[in-house]
Structures are given as C-alpha cells and as structure tokens.
Computed example of a mutant assay.
Amino acid sequence: MRIGVLGAAGIVPEALLKPARENPDVDIAAIAARDISRAHEFAAKHRVPEVHATYEELLADPSIDAVYNPTPNGLHGRWTLAALAAGKHVLCEKPFSANASEARLVADAAEAAGLVVMEAFHYRYHPFTRRMEELLASGELGEVQHIETAVCFPLPKFSDIRYNLSLAGGATMDAGCYAVHMARVLGGATPTVVDARAKLRSPEIDRAMTASLRFPSSATGRVRASLWSSDVLRISARVVCSGGELRAINPLSPQFWHRLSVRRGDSRSVERFSHRPSYAYQLEAFADAVLRDVPPLTSPADAIETMTAIDAIYEAAGLRPRVPTS
C-alpha cells in the first residue's frame, strides 16, 4: 500500500514514518505541503521519495493508494472528502471532523466510494486498551458504575493552531477528543452530556473543559481535558464497578510508561504491556482494513458518535460546536 502524506505536520514522523519502516505492507511514497520548500526539506530529512507541489497534485497521483491526513482540525473533513473523491483510502488524524454533521458527510462519502476511512485514535489498537475492554466485558469486576477519563497537558504556546477557532481548535477538540473517545470505549456506548464547564483562553476557545456524562446503563461519567490549567499533566482513566475497579495511567501512549491497576474485591494486581508504539498497532490496523477488509475499530460510524458527544459538550458549556475551516 503506497501512502501519500498531506502536510509536513510535526506528528508525521512518530505517527506514520517510524511505524512504516517496520511494516512490510506500507510504503510512504510521497508528501505535499502548503510550502513546497518545507515539503522538500521534510522529504530529504525523512527519506520520502517524492514531493508534490499541492495536495491536489498528490491526490491525482494514480500510484498513491491511500493518504494520511494530519491537516488542522477544521480541514480534516475537506481533505478526507477530496481524497475519497480521488479514490484514495484515508487515515485521518483525530478529531475526525469539525463537528458531527461533517462527520456524517464523510461517513456517507466513504460508504458510497467503498473506501476505508479510519480515525487515528492510535491508543485504541494497543493491547493496553484491549485489556481494559476485556476486563470490563468479562463481568469479573461487576457492573460499571462510574467512568473518569482525563487528558491534560500543558501547551503554553498560545499561537499554536490548537487555540485557533477558525481551524476548529480548543482543548475539547484536541485533548478532549481522546478523553471523550476513551469514555465511550470503556462505557461501551455513547453517553449523554449532563453538564459541562469550560475555562477560556479567548472567546469561544476552551483551554480546559470538564463534562459530566450519563451512559444508557445509568453509569455516570466525567471527562476532563486541558491544554492549560491547574491539571498540568494528567493522562488517566478510572472505572468503578460494583465488584472492583481499574485505574490506568497513560493509556494513550503506553510505549513511554504506563500502569494498569486492577482491584477485584479485596485483591489488587498490576498489569504491564508491550512497549511497542501504539502507532505501530494503528498502522497495522489500517493496512488490514485496506488490504484485507478487516473493519477498523475507529470507523466513520464510531467518529460520528464521538463528534456528537463533543458537540453536546460545547453546547452544554455555552459554546458553539466547531465549524469547518472555510
């Protein structure tokens, strides 16, 4: 599978180039960027063989089978739709789109084209997350009663695009999409939003968000996300069940460090997992979806549910859901 890259974003080496080197199914064939000199510099540094002058030119290349879309949030939908129109499969960075309405447009286009579109929630494919799901689904901890997820890290560079409303920025769109998605995965369903409170960096741009949730099972939930708050660094999940509890530290990138603590009644244990990068598991899943018709876990249908919850959080906090970049 020959992949073209839409943009020289900072995430590209870690998320795509490094795992591709160990994956025999994948060849990173080309890159395009808004600044062609930057594209040439990136290609030379990372040994990408071909540079296209524009995104459109890359999408028109008949030798490209799929694209990786790490453009800013507000452009995800536009370039995923363009890639589908050009007959390419897409691995799209999170969040999948600017809002739920745009996610539905992309989902419909992917279905009509018969092509794979997969959202890049890399943690979802790591054995750490699979194990949490397995523990909860087995019933050995009893019924799920309460779920807490948090993704908080400091981003004091306020000129960063993640603080840019016109590019569909905000803490809930960045760190928060992970926290919301993880709550959905651990809860086994999409919750309703009970209330939400935002801390603002500028009008309509949240630097932090806290939301209370309720799941169809009547379990409660709470998600926290921030790019700048008193929660300087917190990447965690906690699930309280009727017969036990699990606590996860750094479930997003367990290759760096992680811990899963499990309480069953009065018994406690700690589990550890592979330090193989979560991005490597993700790229394998994308290749399986494209080459072997294995449905991805982070499908367009899954993305619609996440974006629906994110829209509801913004509305509950008195803010507008994001819109695509015009």
Rank of each mutant, 00 (worst) to 15 (best):
D160Q: 05
L6A: 09
D266T: 11
G139F: 13
R292A: 14
S97M: 08
T190N: 04
R238V: 15
R222N: 10
R238S: 12
D174N: 13
F215K: 02
P24V: 05
G169M: 06
T54P: 04
C92L: 01
A316L: 08
V223D: 02
I11M: 10
I161Q: 12
S63A: 15
P321H: 08
R34W: 09
A100N: 03
L155S: 04
T308V: 02
V12T: 01
R214T: 13
G139L: 13
A29R: 14
V48G: 02
G169F: 05
L135N: 03
R234S: 09
P296L: 10
A179F: 07
D174K: 04
S261E: 14
E315I: 05
S267L: 04
V12I: 08
S326E: 11
H181G: 11
V26W: 07
E284T: 15
V144I: 15
M173T: 08
P70Q: 06
R259E: 15
E22Q: 14
I3P: 00
D266L: 09
E111W: 08
A29G: 00
T306I: 13
A137R: 15
I31M: 07
A9L: 01
A98K: 01
I64E: 02
G221W: 11
D25L: 04
A113T: 04
S166K: 11
S326I: 04
F42N: 04
C152S: 06
E305N: 13
D27R: 14
P216Q: 10
A196P: 03
L155K: 11
H126V: 03
R184E: 08
Y178W: 13
P300L: 13
I64S: 01
P127I: 05
G318C: 12
A137C: 03
G87P: 07
D25K: 07
S101I: 03
R2H: 14
V144G: 01
A285F: 10
V270H: 06
R78S: 08
V144P: 02
I64M: 05
L297E: 09
E93A: 11
E271R: 11
V116H: 06
G114C: 06
L75T: 01
A289P: 00
L297T: 04
S274K: 05
L165Q: 12
T54A: 05
G244I: 03
E41T: 05
A316Y: 04
V144L: 14
I147Y: 03
T308H: 02
V323C: 03
A82N: 10
E271Y: 05
R238D: 11
Y125P: 01
Q145C: 12
L233K: 11
F128S: 02
R268Y: 05
V117E: 03
D206V: 13
S226Q: 09
N69A: 09
D108K: 15
C177T: 15
P251S: 09
H40D: 13
T210D: 10
D65R: 07
L233S: 04
P216E: 09
I31G: 00
D174L: 11
P277N: 06
V262Q: 02
I249H: 07
S269I: 10
